[in-house]
Design a protein around this nucleic acid. Sequence first.
DNA 1: TAACCGTGGGA
DNA 2: TTCCCAAGGTT
Length: 344
Amino acid sequence: MAWYDANARIMPWRVGPQARRAGDTPDPYRIWLSEVMLQQTTVAAVKDYFHRFTMRWPTVTALAAAADEDVMAAWAGLGYYARARNLLKCARVVVADHGGQFPTTRDGLLGLPGIGPYTAAAIAAIAYDLPETVVDGNVERVMARLHDLHLPLPTAKPELIEFARRLTPRQRPGDYAQAVMDLGATICTPKSPACGICPWRAPCAARSEGTAQQLPKKLPKKPKPIRLGIAYVGRRTDGAFLLQRRPDKGLLGGMLGWPGSEWAEIPPQESPPVAADWRDLGAEARHTFTHFHLRLAVRVAVIPPEAQPDVGAFIPHDRFRPSDLPTVMRKAFDLARASFEYES
DNA sequence: TAACCGTGGGA
DNA sequence: TTCCCAAGGTT
């Protein structure tokens, strides 16, 4: 705790140890929002999104009243889009069933859309200073090293949770939870941990065994296959773009995208969304998802004003922002844009 | 249980 | 270029 008092990272959603002592209390809405954004995502990537969300939707009530497409567009680029869909669901449940106040216990939070064991414990500890045990990737790593546990993840998870539970203090549990995560993020890092300046170097078993660097052990990962696809970037003569809202379930669910073929390991079939003079762009957008690599061929066409597309809808030029697209679709647009600008 | 679900930065 | 990994949850 002394180490945290002197070394706590400064974050837009955080009430630091000094401010907390002075009586400041975190806003549960901002803690919840930050925790959902931080799932599998770095602090650096989250900061700008957090600012934009809290400026535009300062309270859970404001967020609950937002249009789905506005929230999805604001989330675009951050990834794991089920988080954004569940964020909105959760906000609406909090407003409709809890009077706009987040539940104040771990069990009350657990089971709200998008809130699992980690996030429930994190909100309970950080926002309400309850002695709940927070186990994220940082804590797993710190515990595996502290106890020199060589059992690989995910098998080791229950044991690591138990290690973490035993260490959780009754005093300042919210600061403690953030302290261990800060320690993992800045000292007990995955590669080249700074054991020499670690406040836990004395009791650390992996430090004395010289095994810190190789912990925690993990099961080998499966290789990622390469999938192929075609995207159709169509612009009508008035400048409107032909886009398609993706279904809520599955990859990039609920996001805007270009119409296109299936993405599979076999060469895709041409499947233009509307009859037009589609030209092959030559270049392809390359993108890596969680479990496959994608090579996306890009077709471009200027679509005549009277055309009736089979799929998708035209979005007027002045209402289209590339930043509303998930990254893979923005990559395809960036390739296509060059050709449009060349023609016009 | 294991697969699915994004992205960007660093090594 | 390629691989690893980051404050995980849902199905």
